[in-house]
Design a protein around this nucleic acid. Sequence first.
RNA 1: CGGGACGUAGCGCAGGUUGGUAGCGCGCAUCGUUCGGGACGAUGAGGUCGUCGGUUCAAAUCCGACCGUCCCGACCA
Length: 568
Amino acid sequence: MRWSQAFIPTLRDDPADSEAVSHKLLVRAGYIRQLMSGVYSMLPLGQRVRDKVMDVIREEIDAIGGQEFLLPQLHPMEIWERTGRAETMKDIMMTFEDIKGSPVVLGPTHEEIFATLARELTSYKQLPQLWYHIQTKFRDEARPKSGLLRVREFTMKDSYTFDIDFDGLDVQFDRHFEAYTRIFDRLGMETIAVKASSGAMGGKDSVEFMAPSTVGEDEVAHCGACGYAANVETASSVIAKVVDPEGDHDLEVFDTPGVRTIADLETFEGGAPADRQIKTLVYMVDLEPALILMRGDHSVQDQKLMDHLGSTDVRPAQPDEIVELLGADAGSLGAVGVKDVRIVADEALRDRAGMTTGANENDKHMRGVDVERDIAVSEWGDLRQVVAGEGCSTCGEPLDVFTAIEVGHIFKLGTFYADSLGVTVLDENGVTAPIVMGSYGIGVERNMAASVEANHDDKGIIWPMPIAPYHVIVTLVRVDDATMEAGESIHDELTANGIEVLLDDRDERPGVKFNDAELIGVPLRVTVGPRGLGNGVVELLDRRSGESSEVALGDVASTIARLVAESV
RNA sequence: CGGGACGUAGCGCAGGUUGGUAGCGCGCAUCGUUCGGGACGAUGAGGUCGUCGGUUCAAAUCCGACCGUCCCGACCA
């Protein structure tokens, strides 16, 4: 491809409405343009990378036995009602009515559709199956952000497995785990596989592949010593026990004018350190109030709370709901003496004594609280948000906590879809058995962006060879006849060897061309100019290392073909 | 959905408080000089100032409504 004929609109300045590095670079380097919030056009370079990401995924899923389908983007609402997900996913579903007035959904995912096809499976002899497709998904995210990292229209590879039993599911799950590991490696990313909250899928195991990044939306707790890794939505840790004063503690209410926070009470005369306070939070769980008790210096992890309660209808109570329940405002709340309300206490409060907490009267607190003696705890749970430096629950070494991008997610779905859609086969005894399903997703464009997050420098993108839009860029320092001729012959020879070449034949100053080459991130650059040609050589530059070497004209094609073959 | 910011040429921005012929840089076109790390000179093209309404002799500027985009939070298999 000749750059002079290509549409590669590079920009000198960062776009004003971007924050994430991958967003800035993909726009500046001419890969993408935004059409509306969370919706992007793929320009020619972007489309080439997208295609390559899909190729990598396709190769690895084919390698574990995948059969590629292409399912529709338009779904009848009715099929979503059958599994109940029309309701659970209504907030992100794009819907409209067709000309007859029938409700239609722009597919946010395809479990229902694949499961429907799977009803044609009739015998255990046909199992296992591994089906997948790469298709556009629509999710009306409340808040698209960070360029391609969180969008409303995107491409996803989603695969689905069908087995006669859970042992078979385990095998397919493990194969996907291996395939995903290879995919992210080829996409140039370090990923950590973490246990995730099973969420509303009702499945058993769920593993997320996380690429550490400051712009990631998920937080991961990771132990460098033993390898324990979990989304903070499920992570647990061990903490040092706080030693409470010995002896008897008498309940005592005392005045605390103006004290509204844990920190206030720490510094207040007669107050208590945060780890000797009880934090009382009011939540509405399935529309019923509940008290959540935490140690003063701990935060409740909402997802852990939801998992513990077995409900997704959980929210903090409104100020007026709090007053109605306890008779005081947030800042003066406590659970002592509270009856007929569900009280859930964090494990860190077990056996604690002589604690301080709110007295359910504004500007008053209560000291001398022995948790088990004074509070009618209805259940205990691990509700605490893990913090960096706490002990690993497996080996005790300090945990690291960092943000990461979820680049893939694999689920053991179990028989949820089999049950709701009637996906069954006859087993070897002739008995009807539900098919056991797994589902496995990778967002294509999100992985493009995540790869850029992991592969760039201050000059621009540094694509890993397997997904680079071109393997090599041939930069002509001058566009005189001799240089052009040499450049064209290198381009032709490389192309004949199956190398993808971008020939920068633009009549621009060398600095402009070098900067553009670095910005768009092609891994190899061949610089052709009169200076080298006089000696029969060109310069070969490695984008990532910045190392360059002189290569004789006759050796260019073979040298590059070897480098590309090594790194694709 | 709550909070904040922004919307003026392809891109990045000024102008707005004090209403009166719409500006700067980059990019773009033509010509000339230049040419191994974002050149220089000359000439030029390009804008319903987000939309609608109001105030006014006169609105990019003041007022109102709406639309859009980004950021923080909430939400999110």
